[in-house]
Structure formats: C-alpha cells, structure tokens
C-alpha cells in the first residue's frame, strides 16, 4: 500500500503530526483522536518493553532455566514484593502493600541521599574554592562566581528574616538567579525551534515533496 507512491507509514506519520499541531489553533476532534491513540499506544509500548527487557531476561528466564543455580531462587523475593503492591485492593491485608513501598522508597532514598551529599555538595563546594591571587581579569571573574554562589545560598537561608544586610545579599542572589534563568531560557529557544524544524522537514521533504515530484 503506497498511495501517491508514498509508503503508508509516512501517511500515518504525517497525519498524526498534523493532528497534534492542530491543537495550537484550538482543541478539535483530530487532536482528541491523536491524543487518545497516543495515550493508549505509549502505554502498550511500555508494557512491551518492560516485559521484553526486564521481566523476561531478569526474572522469568533465569527462574525457569535454572531455578536453584546462580542464586536465582532469590528472585522470589522481588516477585513477592511486586505482588504485595496489589494487596492494597484487599481490605484485610491492604497494609502489606506498604511493605513493598517501604522497601522500594527506603532503598532509593538511601542511594540518592549519598548521591546528593557526595556527588553534588562535595564536588560543587570544592570547585567554588577558586584562586583570587592570579591578578588580571580572571580574578575578577572568580569574585563574580564566589559572590554568585554565596548570595544564592543566602537566598535559600530560611532561619532568619531577609532584612538588612541579609536582605541585600539575598537580593543579589535573586539577580543571579534571574540572569541564570534568562541565560538558560535564551540558550534553549533555538534548540526548541530546531525540534519543530525536524517535524516540518519531515512533512515537507519526506511527505509533500515526493508527492509533487511524483
């Protein structure tokens, strides 16, 4: 199937692209169709990759192929925890669902805690200790960095009212934040436009052009 010599996949692709873009004008049945299809298919997609890439290789296959070897029998533990999530719907044992949740949350909270304290704070604090004695313009820029980091941290200081000197420093912090937000925003604009150009380029070059040129 290839109307106008263009593969059916391209037609579907182009149709769905236009359906979504039409939302910019206003909500309409085409957008609603694409949106519903998107919700359904994307969830189905995820069901597919979780089964194919996680459940099959990491749970089912090891358990079926070699249950006692390689400590595979221990995989029963995550399976039980996974099933426990559903106990929430059985009133009498609903509280057991919390056990699975407690293990899941507890573990990640611990992992991330170390990551924040170690990966973020130590590295960033160390790198803020910059030399000021080398003279020249670089020393001035290093002062800018130090002032920026300190004033932003003061802005996030909650234990005192931001009045007087503290208020003025935190005001400087706000300025740094705004410059940073502005810079990020400006940095992003062109990249966002390029995403749109990616879609337009598909519509024009892959779909319309071959149709015109036959």
């Amino acid at each position: 199937m290839a109307p106008f010599g263009i593969p059916i996949g391209v037609w579907i692709n182009a149709f769905l692209t236009i359906c979504i873009l039409s939302f910019l004008y206003k909500d309409n049945p085409f957008f609603r169709f694409a949106e519903s299809l998107f919700a359904g298919m994307s969830l189905g997609y995820y069901i597919g990759i979780v089964t194919e890439n996680t459940l099959k290789p990491n749970l089912f296959r090891p358990m079926i192929n070699d249950f006692w070897g390689n400590h595979n029998f221990l995989l029963v533990i995550p399976m039980i925890l996974g099933v426990m999530l559903y106990f929430r719907y059985i009133r009498k044992i609903a509280w057991l669902a919390r056990i699975a949740l407690a293990v899941y949350i507890g573990y990640y909270v611990g992992v991330y805690l170390m990551q924040k304290l170690h990966g973020d704070i130590l590295f960033q604090a160390r790198d803020t200790i910059v030399p000021l004695t080398m003279g020249g313009i670089e020393a001035v820029w290093n002062v800018v960095i130090i002032v920026g980091v300190f004033s932003v941290l003061v802005y996030f200081y909650f234990s005192a009212e931001h009045k007087g000197a503290l208020g003025r420093v935190s005001r400087v912090g706000i300025w740094f934040l705004m410059i940073s937000f502005g810079a990020s925003f400006g940095y992003t604009i062109m990249a966002r436009i390029s995403l749109l150009m990616g879609r337009f380029s598909f519509l024009v070059n892959t779909w319309v052009r071959p149709m015109i040129s036959g």
């Binding site: 790198d127 130090i146 920026g148 980091v149 932003v152």
Partner: peptide, 29 residues
C-alpha cells in the same frame, strides 16, 4: 554569562537543593 554568573547561580541552587533533598531523605529514613 553562561560560564560565570549562570554557573555560579546553578551551583548555588544545586547545593541548596541537595541539602533540601538530603534533609527530606533523612526525614523519610
């Protein structure tokens, strides 16, 4: 702008947010 004021502000937010997250994580633990 990107390497000086922006990097400084980002660093301030990273340290602050890491502290906030850490204290919340300790509350959960």
């Amino acid at each position: 702008l990107m390497t000086k004021p922006n990097a400084a502000a980002q660093r301030g937010i990273i340290i602050g947010a890491a502290l906030g997250a850490a204290s919340m994580q300790i509350r959960v633990i």
